[in-house]
Design a protein around this nucleic acid. Structure first.
Lengths: 339, 339
DNA sequence: TTGTAGGCGTTATCAG
DNA sequence: CTGATAACGCCTACAA
């Protein structure tokens, strides 16, 4: 039941027989302190187990070294990959992160941003949810930098780093066409996500370059869920008209493959398959699945680096205002036997 | 370039023509304020876009409503499940979490705890790494409650919530024995993790109850990695003596299954398989894999609830000191065709 | 080479 | 019913 207060800088000062200013300067190395005194102070800190109070420090110094991170789904391996990339590179730079889950809900996202404002974060990295990010203009203004990851924001101009989804889909569909597939289905996420739009764009481009017609019935927008994948495949095949599927999400793809197996369709003879996200399990299915590998950790890392740059520009007063930075990370197709 | 300071409670007070005390009370509903004044204050806050500064609040009120969370591997779906469970139930209660990755390293873990101390967290939830947690006695003492998840701590007494790994393994091995398997291998994590010990215990119990000998060569301790699973299976089968495998980790199991396929062994005829963790992909392999489902989110949720209880006991002064709480969550075997 | 003291934005303790 | 004002723990001029 030791409920004595945690020691403060005052306690250290008293014990070492110096002023609080000196202690502070010893801690931060911010002005010369004689070796004897330094020694005494360090000793005192050690003895009473002093840890600086970052709240007080931040209050005084107006910087928290904290970055807020908003992820739409913490159950999704892809997004937690982003989170890991962010955590890894920010913690190297001495920053820490506060994470919240927006559950793909725009209102929740908004209130998280308010919370982060209260917490005085000095930067925000987020995967924007469907709906507008316009509120950021008034909520955040230019108080701190914002970087969007994985998806472009809506109704808000800002830095972002995304995957080359258009190109990835274009290549994947080209590949399928080259192998003779004619009726290629796309099983996608929500229609208002930038990633979905980009993929459709890549798809159309590949089709038109081969003089193939665009059939909207083959392009199904929905959710990133097992059930959605399952139902959609059952549905599409009932109409007997597909010979290949491109899955934008791996959870949906698992559902879809389950349906394919239940229907006793052979992969790739009856339906070829290409997946997004190359998690290890895609190697051990029968057959192993061809995959567009999406470097989610890399995405997070780059977002973190971008925000660190913005932070630096701000402190150094370096202009940097040559407009917003829009980065895109290439993906890679890993050929296996499902197509 | 609006770099004007964020408005403070003083600005609100001035605009509303009241004292800062009144504003504070309006915000927190902590004493009666007349309707007219309340109205004026709310208006003023709205007008200048006031958001309370949680740093200052915490500094003054000695509570941050922040819980620190330490996860050993943010790339692991199982652990991020724990994180999600924690986040979900804590955010409901108005708490926020700071997350860090210990990378399974005891030293890193230690420095994260120091950081959390500085951040004045009011609780700590962690998956302990291999090595001692003894340092917590001096680093944290009884400053704030600690709850361990998934693994028991080492050299430190405290609350924890873990899975019933002994029972789970016991049941799984029993199942394999009942189906006639004689040489059952265990592919495990690090030998010093409590989860590993528990699993071995369950294994031995099942064997001895069936009068079967314990062969240490069948029990391989190592890492949670694809390569480890792959190598271990190659190794074990080279000696031609196993007819079933229990995998403690799904990444290792993917590697192991890859090896099995390369060796042209049939599942379950040549080797039966049981996996820990029932992620969706286990449904679509050929054959689908029997699995010990591990409710990681549930684990996180319970840890969060436990720490909330401890926090409440502390403020209410309720004793609660009836010793440490050790909870364990049951797992469930999901039968499929790999055994 | 070191100390004094004011203030960061709140909340809490007194008064009125 | 409301206002002054002192703290919370730290940093940083300014002084010495």
């Amino acid at each position: 039941m030791n409920s004595e207060k945690r020691p403060s800088i005052k306690d250290v000062a008293k014990l070492a027989g110096v002023s609080t200013a000196t202690v502070s300067h010893v801690i931060n190395g911010t002005r010369y302190v004689s070796d004897v005194v330094t020694e005494r102070v360090n000793h005192a800190m050690e003895e009473i187990g002093y840890v600086p109070n970052l709240l007080a420090r931040s209050l005084r110094s107006h910087t928290t070294k904290t970055i807020g991170l908003i992820i739409p789904d913490l159950s999704n391996y892809y997004y937690t990959g982003v989170a890991e990339g962010v955590e890894r590179s920010l913690s190297e730079k001495g920053y820490h992160i506060v994470v919240s889950n927006s559950y793909e809900d725009n209102e929740t996202e908004k209130s998280i941003v308010q919370l982060y404002n209260s917490l005085q974060v000095c930067g925000l990295i987020m995967v924007p949810t469907i709906g507008s990010q316009g509120y950021l203009s008034s909520f955040v203004g230019s108080n701190y930098p914002i970087v969007f990851v994985d998806r472009r924001p809506s109704k808000y101009e800002g830095d972002y780093v995304i995957l080359e989804n258009t190109e990835a889909t274009y290549e994947a569909v080209n590949l399928l066409i080259d192998r003779g597939h004619k009726r290629i289905a796309l099983i996608l996420g929500n229609k208002d996500m930038s990633t979905t739009c980009d993929r459709i764009e890549g798809y159309r481009k590949a089709l038109s370059e081969h003089g193939m017609p665009y059939d909207p019935e083959l392009v199904v927008e929905g959710r990133f869920s097992f059930d959605f994948g399952y139902e959609t495949v059952k549905d599409l095949t009932k109409k007997q008209k597909i010979d290949a599927i491109f899955f934008a999400n791996d959870t949906a793809s698992i559902g879809g493959i389950k349906a394919i197996k239940e229907l006793n369709l052979r992969i790739p003879e009856d339906v070829a398959i290409i997946n997004c996200n190359g998690f290890e399990w895609t190697e051990i299915t029968t057959p192993p699945i061809t995959v567009v590998s999406q470097p989610s950790r890399e995405l997070g890392k780059i977002a973190a680096e971008l925000i660190m740059n913005r932070l630096q520009e701000k402190t150094e007063g370096t202009a940097g205002e040559e407009g917003y930075r829009h980065l895109s990370v290439p993906t890679k197709i890993i050929m296996r036997e499902s197509c």
